[in-house]
Design a protein around this nucleic acid. Structure first.
Lengths: 146, 146
DNA sequence: CTCATTTATTTTGATAATCAAAGTATGAAA
DNA sequence: TTTCATACTTTGATTATCAAAATAAATGAG
């Protein structure tokens, strides 16, 4: 592997491992210690904004429907997430966050904002364009491989 | 969250989830279908090059010693990894890859190289400097939070 | 309208990965 | 030596996960 490419690759691999681990630790020390990192990412995917269908969320998280059901059961029991049965189509479950869920969502979002702010420290506006281009490249690559 | 920051954040979150999922699928279709993605990342951390101590690898992967032991047991049984007991200090286990393990390592590396190549498509040399700077920023941020 | 088919979710049963804590073996130091 | 520290392994329990079967609701062909 070309040296520069290898450096960037190793850096990305390290970063992703570390982010998960740090998030897990911060979570354990926070008021939300009844959640695992997977729970947190499920809450993040559900979001405060839409009322997504269960199947949409499963797809985004690359989980089977059955696994999502049990995730939602857990999060509903702990009062982070609520099921809303659709009245148009009574097979469909839409998902929303409770007050506690929204608190968690904002806390997690704040951590990510800090992270991205530091990522972009001393990066000029036109340089940000470069980064956005590279991320788009990567997303296209991944789309081709799905 | 500021719009640009949110876009970059969402992109990174999506990319991370997708990479894991794609790697998992590629693995299942490859000649290495007896491995899970966690196995693959353990092989990647062990590397072809050094003879790292078990405890070093555990640390890099953020696994407890016990979990690493069982990972190594699994990978040794499947003939990807070998234990080498250090003769200086007979408590220490050093880890190496078998021929099959090195094959797997190279295959995984090739996928990552393709990924990074596409990430850097149309990115000029001086723009790469920007990306390296941003990644260093992020690594520093993560180090502060460990 | 009614039965067959499709769709959305849930349930079930089994398996992987993980951790904390206790155990074992070796080395280092007093 | 005896004691303490270090490196790894074992044990027992828990959690997340999947595939496949089950349920329940909507849709569509006749």
């Amino acid at each position: 592997m070309k040296k520069q490419v290898k450096t960037i690759n190793d850096s990305l691999v390290r970063i992703y491992g570390d982010i998960l681990w740090i998030e897990e630790n911060e979570l354990r020390q926070s008021r939300f210690k009844d959640l695992t990192i997977k729970d947190m990412h499920a809450i993040n995917a559900i979001t405060m904004y839409d009322k997504k269908k269960a199947s949409q969320v499963a797809k985004e998280l690359h989980l089977t429907p059955g696994t999502l059901t049990s995730t939602i059961n857990r999060l509903e029991k702990k009062d982070y997430v609520k099921r809303i049965r659709s009245s148009n189509d009574r097979r469909v479950i839409r998902l929303g966050l409770t007050k506690k869920g929204r608190l968690m969502y904002r806390a997690h979002d704040a951590f990510h904002r800090m992270m991205i702010d530091s990522f972009l420290k001393d990066v000029e506006p036109d340089e940000i364009k470069t980064i956005e281009k590279a991320l788009r490249n990567l997303e296209n690559f991944l789309r081709e491989h799905s």
